[in-house]
Design a protein around this nucleic acid. Sequence first.
RNA 1: GGCGGCGUACCCAAGUGGCUAAGGGAGAGGUCUGCAAAACCUUUAUGCAGCGGUUCAAAUCCGCUCGCCGCCUCCA
Length: 485
Amino acid sequence: MRVYNTLTGKKEDLVPLAPGRIGMYACGVTVYDVCHIGHARSAIVFDVIRRYLRFRGFDVKYVRNFTDIDDKIINRAKQEGIGWDEVAKKYTEEYYTDMDRLGVGRADVEPKATEHIPEIIAIVRGLVEKGYAYVIDGDVYFEVKKFSDYGKLSKRDVDDMLAGARVEVDERKRSPMDFAVWKSSKEGEPSWESPWGPGRPGWHIECSAMTMKHLGESFDIHGGGADLIFPHHENELAQSEAFTGKPFVKYWIHNGFITIDREKMSKSLGNFFTIKEILGKFDPEVLRFFLLSTHYRSPIEFSDASLREAELSIDRYYTTLIRIDDFLKESSDKIKTTAEEKGFEETLSVFIDKFKEAMDDDFNTALALGLIFELIREVNKYLDARPSGRKAWELITRSSDLLSQSGNVLNIFNKKPEEWYDALMVTKRIPFTKADILDRIEQRQEARQRKDWAAADSVRKELEDQGIIIEDKKNGSTWKVMIGK
RNA sequence: GGCGGCGUACCCAAGUGGCUAAGGGAGAGGUCUGCAAAACCUUUAUGCAGCGGUUCAAAUCCGCUCGCCGCCUCCA
């Protein structure tokens, strides 16, 4: 398996510190607001990485934190006139609601900053004792120039940064680059007792404390959005390695941004969509599929049109699943071998290897999805040839297994087709009930029997106007929700 | 100013040295159908921003040019 490592700037073979086991940490969210689709991307990317590592047989311990104390939370609490801990609780719940819908699994450990204050204080104390941090008026700062490797993750030079400094200068700090590992609290702000007086953790320190506690001083994979590389991960790395004297993380993995009109989506620009907004218009699976249809490190341009395309692709998948189900239900013993059989069998036998090859190469979900749709086409082609008999039944069953295996890794395509259409009835706001539709299909069937094509077509037209498509098959008609319009 | 990334068909998007440049959408034509839909087939990049270079061989490596974007400040 090869993984792109931000630290080295190269794809490297994935060799865990302990054979067969992987410790993995992904930065979760600061719980001060509802999540936007950028959070969704990050969560989904690391969810898939974790699922795939498991699929490949690794014993994965996945840790994803909540930052539940921070300036933004405090400000939010003031705005809303509630306690900071209530803010954290509220948005943690919102987070779970959104992520559950998107099929993002729970991590094995989901630690919170406020539950690790003693560990944080121990690290801060250690940093001071070792001379990496200094105390001023109850604040504790990490002294960047004491850590000679500073800048190795984000590839920047301390002097260059100082030259073009846009950082606001705090006169008390020895250098503008120094950052707080512990902040004294003002009156009325949340605080914890510490050797330096009442205060709270600096922004980066909680991740050092939580990774160390749950994954050890050195671990395999640390992930997050690319915007965390600097300063968050750079600082986290510096303070962790300064404290332990050991390498912190073996592989740093960062996902790319979502853009809107070619510009980074961000809260400060205001050009963002919340997960909830999008899920009001599209099925969660559509968003998940869309986010996986581009490699995780590339920027991904977000638009309604792209989501509609994703929806169309998913529909193609489920349409084929229906064909598969129909075939398996009505298969007969009469043996009919087709010319397609040999090629189809070959496709099936190499599928999983190709899927692994794609995912082994830095989690190339876009390529993996391409392979799934190649298989979909082969299945359709095979079924078009109208095979029958035991062999055909076996091949189709195998296809179905392969599809669900690969779908499970990505955690998409695991609905029943009916569930997909039920969900579409809701998101597309179809003004009919299923009974309404079946009723009309019945009427149309009678008209067709009379060969009253005009009447039959008018029923079709009526349903079509409301987004329902009728499909005539050999033993009756079925319906589905029209999409892509 | 410093550092980094990207530019592949009408659109989205894989591919980073060597078979016909994946896959999806859209368009055109066809098979099937009472008509449709779905599905399948054919077709749409002798070509990978442009120009040079390295190589037996380049979308893929190197250089320059143009265009777009990101980080350097909270940010997934």
